[in-house]
Nucleic acid binder design. Structure first.
Lengths: 250, 250
DNA sequence: CTATCATTATGTAATTATTACACAATGGAA
DNA sequence: TTCCATTGTGTAATAATTACATAATGATAG
């Protein structure tokens, strides 16, 4: 491309894109993975939280901003997993029609690129907040997600795939559980993410052998069966192991 | 964000970004990983191939376009690995100074986002072509890369990390070698990517046990030592194994 | 108070995968 | 013909993964 062409392009802004970000915010409750979705004003249409990235911020900062706005949480496990720039990413006319009461159809760019992040949060600590274009923000069971706006079903699908790989590389379980948790809870989390049953004896051995868990004296009370022990993630041990290099998970 | 704000934003184009793409094109020659770099006109400055993504194309299509332009190749293993949107990504003033003879400093946007792809190609099949802003396109040994423009050293670093993970999930070796190759060549490729020595007997066992390699009757000739067998990647067997689900690599 | 229910906690043996390790064979060059 | 560099290959030891079953316990219901 020649200097003049570049200048012309800049003039026409042809090479600029609408750059947005979408967050797949995941929590874990009652043995199921949950994802936080927003319902748009005056419709029954749902989508992922997200929005434009401002010129003044890095894309990571934008992701943290959106997370903070929707969940109230600051320190969150957040990871970019894919950038979506198909052409077209979704049926533009359909979206224009569905959301015309909210957004002038003119505003939709032909090609919108969105950067996908997933976040892992402690379900109990989140207070879901809708944004300016939406009226409802709530958790959905990952297995009961409706048809979403844009290509958001697809984005969630890829986020879950990325998570299945990540679970082998990091103790991500600990981001999704409260500070104290039981072994069966942790196992159920792994089973949900990996989408397969695990043997409790082998799971216990494996997890314990990582040496990054502390068993407390306490047990969970109020369950109508043998009370399970509570465990805590031992962050210091984890950091130490990481430095030594040797840490792989399931 | 309210409708009016969105309209205002659109007017000012504040939420639009310069969206570019950079390709880490990797080849393998003489036992070393090579990366294709471009030297800019009238300077000694090098960078990765890349450029703006056009409004009319998907980001994957843009990556294939750039690859085709720089290498002449069509069918290429190409993978998006990360999107870079730090703020700032690099020292803008420095870049403006270095490239002012080519590009009006005005043209540089404050925040540029680039999508990183890596490509794996057969070194021998590539005929490197510079683009409009560059005069030289050539392979560099991965271990001898100079200080590059922008944040391109960083981008290469992350591409190599992504490749180290990918090598466990796919037989990517075959994209980097010619159709026929020897076992020691394949081993050296793995050693280079993983950056560690492998035992030849264990490597042989492991690779053969995947069952996706065919040993030919032929041997490589003209070497002043025992002539090694040639192997071919058995694509049919690979596809079959993939379907059955069970395929993991090193 | 006791029996029942649901669930937790845990060990061992078999299988499979990984690692460690050494030397004879061979093609070309000297 | 000898020498050199490199290829081709097997076995034993160790480590990791899988398969598998039962006693303990806390709450609840009778």
């Amino acid at each position: 491309m020649h200097k003049n062409e570049l200048m012309e392009q800049r003039e026409s802004k042809d090479y600029l894109s609408q750059l947005t970000l979408d967050c797949v915010i995941l929590g874990f409750n009652e043995g199921e993975l949950k994802v936080l979705l927003l319902r748009w004003k005056e419709t029954q249409e749902w989508s992922l939280p997200g929005g434009p990235i401002l010129q003044s911020e890095s894309i990571d900062a934008a992701a943290y901003r959106i997370l903070k706005e929707r969940t109230g949480l600051n320190d969150i496990f957040l990871k970019q997993f894919h950038t979506f720039g198909e052409q077209p990413r979704y049926n533009l006319a359909e979206i224009q029609e569905k959301l015309k009461h909210l957004i002038d159809p003119e505003i939709w760019y032909k090609r919108a690129v969105t950067i996908g992040y997933y976040a892992l949060v402690d379900y109990a600590k989140v207070s879901p907040q809708p944004d300016e274009l939406t009226v409802e923000c709530k958790w959905w069971d990952i297995k009961e997600i409706p048809q979403l706006l844009f290509d958001h079903n697809h984005i969630i699908q890829l986020a879950l795939q990325a998570l299945q790989i990540e679970i082998n590389l990091q103790p991500i379980g600990y981001n999704l559980l409260p500070e104290k948790f039981t072994m069966p809870e942790l196992q159920r989390l792994y089973e949900t993410i990996l989408d397969r049953k695990l043997d409790p004896r082998n799971f216990y051995k494996k997890i314990i052998s990582l040496g990054i868990l502390t068993r407390l004296k306490e047990r969970r009370k109020g369950v109508s069966h043998k009370a399970p022990y509570l465990y805590k993630f031992d962050k210091a041990a984890y950091e130490a192991k990481l430095k030594e290099g040797g840490l792989s998970f399931l």
